[in-house]
Design a protein around this nucleic acid. Structure first.
Lengths: 232, 232
DNA sequence: TTGACGGGTGTACAGCGTACACCTAGCCTC
DNA sequence: GAGGCTAGGTGTACGCTGTACACCCGTCAA
């Protein structure tokens, strides 16, 4: 061994290693578990050592989502704008499902990092190459919003682990108090197993909303829509 | 005065008063400023006194958004489902613009409170009364997602106060690095004053996306759409 | 040999949420 | 009136957080 002193040799830290460890920690134990102290411990290092590689905790979080976003595959080159965008967004969605904490971090960021701007730039490029007007692309991107990053727009996503199913008594009480929610929540042909509040963020719902938007954009594009005169 | 001891009489605390003070504090100084200690200080009380009125900080935050959501006017009774939903959502949006912190709190909640369920129930009721199928309503609510609460889907909302405009040099550098973003961001017929990253969350964008979704739902409804056989 | 420097360490501080024990004023019952 | 219950405000204390600052040591260039 090159190094034979008391303690075992430890691979030197690097920004990359720090970020990867943070992503792993968040994946395994949730975002709340990511503290500088716990992260340092996991890396076998003292908390302050991390500050040689990231400026502060906010930059750590930024770096974590950069890592996730940078791993999203680019849109296919050989498809029309609609299909290309669609597949890219669905790819993004898979990344976000693998790292559920990324959504919250991204949404809390006050400004996009260069990595996120690059992602957005590539997405816009797909639409412009497809012949959509700059005007329409602008509004389409707004309409997509965070869906462009593969986010479901759901509120109240359940935390890690299965949601605690409410007892039948409680469920009946809820159904009585909120009859319309109950009626709609139990109509679930695509996923009959889940229950109220368990968050049915399945692929069907995501694609339903995405296609509603993409179809709408396509229609506007075909009609030569422009935001100044609105012939919707 | 009824009370003449050393210190001035102080109105007694109540859950209502605590929540209102917290909302005011968040409105004025942002969500980060809402700590149990600071809130207590503002109420002229010791931190632990708050715990006689809210169980813990999470419940305080829940109560804050409940207060905001409960203040949203119900949908008009005398309109078709589409107009009724549209106006209600736009009303909700105004409430959310007045309390920008509410979005983040709501999105971080793992489960909806009864107040939120009541809001959702009333929203669903509008669609069902309009004759939409339970099936379609289910998916429409998913597609709307947090937009049903008046949220813009924007990422990177600027914090309170005007966003710091990047210097011309930096702006040029950004435009060079992300040409497509630059092209689309500067095409802004509805709001020519803003700059890249300043967040153009204006009413136009919100309605654009909302109408894309509502129009799509309307079309599916007219076509007798059902999720089992998808004749889109 | 010297000196700079990149990177890990140790200590310390202010702020956070909140558990727990306490005190006090008002009210109810006898 | 006396005694006791209770709602609600207080004080202290603990463990956790992010991070400023001073330090120290190994490597490498001059």
């Amino acid at each position: 061994m090159a190094q034979q002193d008391g303690r075992a040799a430890r691979a030197p830290l690097s920004r990359e290693r720090v970020l990867r460890a943070a992503v792993d920690l968040a994946d395994e134990q949730g975002l709340e578990a990511v503290s500088m102290r716990r992260l340092a411990e996991r890396l076998g290092v003292v908390p302050m050592a991390l500050y040689k590689h990231v400026a502060n905790k906010d930059q750590l979080l930024d770096g974590m989502v950069d890592l996730v976003v940078a791993g999203i595959a680019p849109a296919p080159e050989d498809a029309g704008w609609k299909d290309a965008l669609r597949t890219r967004v669905l790819t993004a969605r898979e990344a976000m499902l693998r790292h559920p904490w990324a959504r919250r971090v991204l949404e809390a960021q006050p400004a996009p990092t260069p990595v996120l701007l690059a992602y957005t730039d590539a997405t816009i490029a797909v639409l412009l190459r497809g012949g959509l007007s700059v005007d329409l692309v602008h509004h389409a991107m707004h309409a997509l919003g965070s869906r462009a990053f593969g986010f479901t727009q759901e509120l109240h996503q359940p935390g890690p682990g299965p949601a605690p199913a409410p007892s039948p008594a409680v469920a009946a009480q809820l159904a009585a108090a909120f009859p319309h929610v109950a009626a709609v929540a139990t109509s679930r042909p695509h996923d009959p197993g889940s229950v109220v509040g368990a968050g049915c963020d399945d692929r069907f719902e995501f694609e339903f909303g995405l296609d509603l938007l993409l179809d709408g954009v396509e229609r506007l594009h075909a009609a030569g829509w422009s935001s100044t005169a609105d012939p919707r």
